[in-house]
């Protein structure tokens, strides 16, 4: 993943709250391999006449402005794939589903948190996003946004977690050895056929 800190692009508004991940990508499309390109599935069932993302002025849009609780719901990373494959680099909303935001950062998509009422009123427009300064400017507006500092660094540097964690291998091994000593049953996952109640249906409730 390549890092970035400054971005200029066309922004488009979706003035709705609770755009959940089922809307971002309906479940029926998620068996496709990523190589199929997920952009075609983005907000699939909301599309229709007058849909803001399909307006001629929104051509090439790469910044999405939305309402509260964007990306709530399921953990499907496919919701982020749909946005990224459709060309989006930034989503701006007053709040995000936690898992969505984390998935976004893992794919280089910035979840910028700020009140969006003023932005939504001037969409579509060209905006400049400065990740280092945490500002969005353009269309006569200048706003600051929030981003978790850990995520900010990760986006700017383009870090990959698996590579980063590899450097901590020794600490993980030490921790695992301690854990195994403290709570050996975590590894002891064999079925116990001698336990009291074995042979009765565990789904029976108590």
């Amino acid at each position: 993943m390549t890092g970035w800190s400054h971005y200029r692009g066309v922004a488009v508004g979706l003035a709705a709250e609770n755009i959940d991940t089922d809307q971002l990508i309906p479940a029926r499309f998620m068996s496709a391999p990523r190589s199929a390109g997920y952009g075609q599935f983005l907000l699939h069932d909301l599309r229709g006449p007058d849909f803001p993302l399909d307006a001629p002025e929104a051509e090439g849009a790469s910044i999405l402005i939305a309402g509260r609780n964007f990306g709530s719901g399921s953990s499907r990373e496919a919701a982020v794939y749909a946005l990224v494959d459709a060309g989006y680099r930034v989503v701006v909303a007053p709040s995000f589903g936690d898992i969505f935001a984390s998935n976004a950062v893992n794919n280089g998509l910035l979840p910028a948190r700020t009140d969006t009422a003023a932005l939504l009123a001037v969409m579509p427009a060209t905006l400049i996003v400065d990740l280092s300064a945490q500002t969005i400017t353009g269309a006569g507006l200048a706003l600051e946004f929030d981003i978790d500092p850990v995520w900010k660094t990760k986006l700017i540097k383009g870090w990959d977690d698996i590579d980063m964690t590899a450097s901590h291998r020794a600490q993980i091994d030490t921790f695992a050895a301690q854990r195994r000593k403290q709570a050996p049953w975590i590894w002891d996952t064999a079925e116990d056929t001698t336990a009291p109640g074995a042979g009765t249906n565990p789904a029976g409730g108590r």
Partner: peptide, 11 residues
């Protein structure tokens, strides 16, 4: 009580 005796409960 609910956990005791489940198939993969600790030995």
């Amino acid at each position: 009580d609910w956990l005791r005796g489940r198939p993969h409960a600790p030995a």
